[in-house]
């Protein structure tokens, strides 16, 4: 109950990654009326969907799926084949921010965000809406990386399976994905990689060889025709060995400088060394 007596909602967003999942488990016994939600793009990795169901069972509560009926495929059709890109991030706007704010509405709500105590300088998605207050339980209670892993172990759900080859949750074709992660996708989920290739090819074909042949009236600056900067996925896949070699080298450098690193951290550091573009803070909190 809020001070005024009106009900205050307690909400916790789950990205499909370890931190937010751990927070959900952590809050399970602390905020009984917690509403858990997940922004479904319809294009998550199968590992993510499987993990969410696991989490739901452990939480003993449903995780509300936002925009279950309007995922990436829907918006891709509506936007008539424009790829989202860092410059034109319609994906985040239409599939994350808008649905969340619509779902929360105008009621007073406390939003719990999974920033760990060892990364308090990182920014998660903090709503600017006045009716939402944000709390950072892990920062308040000093839960760090090891604490998160411990929470997940105790709950018996462990980590999502994609952490073996990818550092972040999110769409299988996320354009913030690193080159080596694309290679990972092509090996773990060749069918999803092929779908990403098909989407890219369609965009390239529609745009015409010289650029905006058929998109004249909808052309806009910063439009992106390929998922990964500077090359098509087919070209990227053809450079597989080169990309993996670089990745291995980065990985071994990282593990040399920091001993006894869990693989998940080494992987993240290695990716960061290869490419330091800022990921999407909404999709990958």
């Amino acid at each position: 109950m809020g001070e005024s007596g009106a009900p205050v909602r307690h909400i916790c967003g789950i990205s499909g990654g370890k931190d937010s999942s751990a927070l959900a488990v952590y809050m399970r016994d602390r905020a009984p009326q917690m509403e858990y939600f997940f922004c479904d793009t319809g294009a998550e990795l199968p590992e993510t969907y499987e993990y969410l169901t696991r989490l739901e069972v452990i939480l003993g509560r449903p995780i509300v799926r936002l925009n279950a009926t309007r995922g990436f495929d829907h918006w891709f059709e509506v936007f008539r084949g424009a790829l989202p890109s860092p410059q034109m991030r319609w994906c985040t706007k239409n599939m994350k921010i808008k649905p969340i704010e619509e779902w929360i509405g105008d009621e007073a709500a406390v939003s719990y965000v999974a920033i760990r105590s060892d990364e308090s300088n990182r920014k998660g998605y903090v709503s600017t809406k006045p009716n939402i207050t944000t709390r950072f339980p892990f920062v308040e209670d000093g839960v760090d990386h090891a604490g998160v892993l411990r929470i997940l172990e105790d709950a018996g759900i462990g980590l999502p399976a994609y952490y073996e080859w990818r550092t972040r949750s999110g769409c299988y074709f996320c354009f913030y994905q690193r080159k080596a992660e694309w290679i990972g996708l092509s090996e773990r989920h060749p069918e999803l990689f092929d779908r990403a290739v098909a989407i890219e090819q369609k965009v390239l074909q529609d745009a015409g060889v010289d650029g905006d042949a058929d998109f004249g009236d909808r052309a806009m600056r910063g439009r992106q025709y390929t998922w990964s900067g500077g090359e098509t996925l087919v070209q990227l896949r053809n450079r597989r060995d080169e990309i993996l070699e670089r990745h291995e080298a980065a990985l071994s450098r990282t593990t040399k400088t920091r001993a006894n690193l869990p693989l998940i951290e080494a992987l993240a550091d290695a990716f960061n060394e290869e490419d330091d573009t800022e990921p999407c803070t909404v999709c990958a909190p």
Partner: peptide, 30 residues
């Protein structure tokens, strides 16, 4: 430890929720 905690879980609403959680912990999959 995870298995024991799942068995001890008394916040489960019913048998179904309880066995689901235990089964999830054992198989690492819901």
């Amino acid at each position: 430890r995870a298995f024991v905690l799942a068995l001890a879980n008394d916040s489960a609403e019913d048998d179904r929720a309880w066995i689901s959680a235990v089964a999830t912990v054992v198989a690492r999959k819901a």
